[in-house]
C-alpha cells in the first residue's frame, strides 16, 4: 500500500486542469461536492424538523384560508377578478414556504457549520474554493425551498386552489425565490458572529411574513408603508407567485424576477468575499 501514489486522476491533476481558467482562486467547478456532503449528512438527520417547516404554511392555509375565509367570503385579486380567500392567500403561503425552506438552511445551519463544525475551514483546506462552497451550500438550501414548494402545490391541487396551467410556473418561481433567499441569507449569516445577532433574522422574518400582502391586499396601508413593503423581498415573491397561480401575467412579473436575480448575485458575491476573508486570509 502506498500513500503517495499517482492515481490516474490525482487531486493534483484535477486542480491543474483549471490552472488557466479565470477565477481559479475562488472556484474549482466542484460546488456539487458540497451538495453531496449535505445529502450524506441528511440521510441520518432528524426528519421531524424538516417536516415542521413544510406543515407550518399548511396550517396557516387551513386556519386562515378555510377558517377565516368562511367569514370573509371572497376578495378581488390584482386585476380585479374575484377569487376565494383561500385562493388569494395560497400563493403567498407557497412563496413563504419556499422562503422558509431556504432560510432554515442558509442561516442557522450555515452559522453552525461555520462557527462550530468548522466545516468551511475544512473544505477550504482542500483544493475547493470559496465560490464552490457558497454555491454548494446555497443550492442545498434552495433544494429544501423547492421541495417545500412542490409539497405545498401537491396539497393545493386537490383543494381546487390551482385554477390554470399557468400555475405550474409557480414551481420555477419557487426555485427563484428560494435561490434568492438562500443566497442572501447565507451572505448575511457569514457576517454575523453571535447567536444574539442571529436572533435578529427571526425578528425580521415574522413581521415580513405577516405584512407583505400575505393575508390582504397592500392597498389598505397608507402609501409610505406600501413603499416600505414593496422594497422587501417577500412582497416580490408573493406578487410573483400570485401572478403565476391566478394567471395574471403582466410586465410587473419581470421586475419581481429582476429583484430576485439581483438578490442571488449579490448574495453569492458577498458570501464568497466573506468566506475568502475568513478562511483564506
Amino acid at each position: 500500500m502506498s500513500m503517495i501514489g499517482l492515481a490516474a486522476d490525482s487531486a493534483v491533476a484535477i486542480a491543474e486542469r483549471r490552472r488557466n481558467k479565470p477565477g481559479r482562486g475562488v472556484y474549482s467547478g466542484r460546488s456539487r461536492v458540497a451538495l453531496e456532503r449535505n445529502l450524506m449528512a441528511f440521510r441520518s438527520s432528524n426528519w421531524i424538523i424538516v417536516l415542521s417547516g413544510f406543515v407550518e404554511p399548511l396550517f396557516y392555509l387551513m386556519a386562515f384560508g378555510f377558517g377565516i375565509g368562511q367569514l370573509i367570503g371572497g376578495v378581488t385579486d390584482g386585476s380585479g377578478h374575484p377569487v376565494s380567500y383561500a385562493a388569494f392567500i395560497a400563493p403567498a403561503l407557497l412563496a413563504t414556504s419556499a422562503m422558509n425552506g431556504a432560510i432554515y438552511d442558509s442561516t442557522w445551519n450555515v452559522f453552525f457549520k461555520m462557527h462550530f463544525a468548522k466545516l468551511y475551514e475544512t473544505m477550504l483546506a482542500t483544493s475547493l474554493g470559496p465560490l464552490d462552497v457558497a454555491v454548494g451550500e446555497i443550492s442545498w438550501a434552495l433544494l429544501r425551498g423547492l421541495v417545500y414548494a412542490i409539497g405545498f402545490m401537491a396539497v393545493m391541487a386537490p383543494l381546487g386552489l390551482i385554477p390554470s396551467w399557468w400555475a405550474l410556473l409557480a414551481i420555477p418561481g419557487a426555485v427563484l425565490i428560494a435561490f434568492g433567499f438562500a443566497s442572501f441569507g447565507m451572505a448575511i449569516t457569514s457576517y454575523l458572529k453571535t447567536f444574539h445577532q442571529m436572533n435578529w433574522i427571526n425578528f425580521f422574518m415574522l413581521p415580513m411574513f405577516l405584512f407583505s400582502g400575505t393575508f390582504y391586499p397592500l392597498n389598505i396601508y397608507p402609501e409610505w408603508i406600501q413603499s416600505v413593503i414593496q422594497a422587501l423581498p417577500l412582497w416580490h415573491a408573493i406578487q410573483l407567485e400570485r401572478g403565476f397561480m391566478l394567471g395574471n401575467i403582466d410586465s410587473s412579473i419581470g421586475w419581481h424576477i429582476a429583484y430576485f436575480l439581483v438578490m442571488i448575485v449579490a448574495g453569492l458575491f458577498f458570501t464568497t468575499r466573506r468566506l475568502t476573508a475568513l478562511f483564506i486570509k
Partner: peptide, 14 residues
C-alpha cells in the same frame, strides 16, 4: 474520508 476525497474532485471509484 469519502466526502473529503470528493472535495478534491476524486472519483467515487477511486
Amino acid at each position: 474520508l469519502f466526502a473529503y476525497g470528493r472535495f478534491f474532485g476524486l472519483s467515487r471509484k477511486f
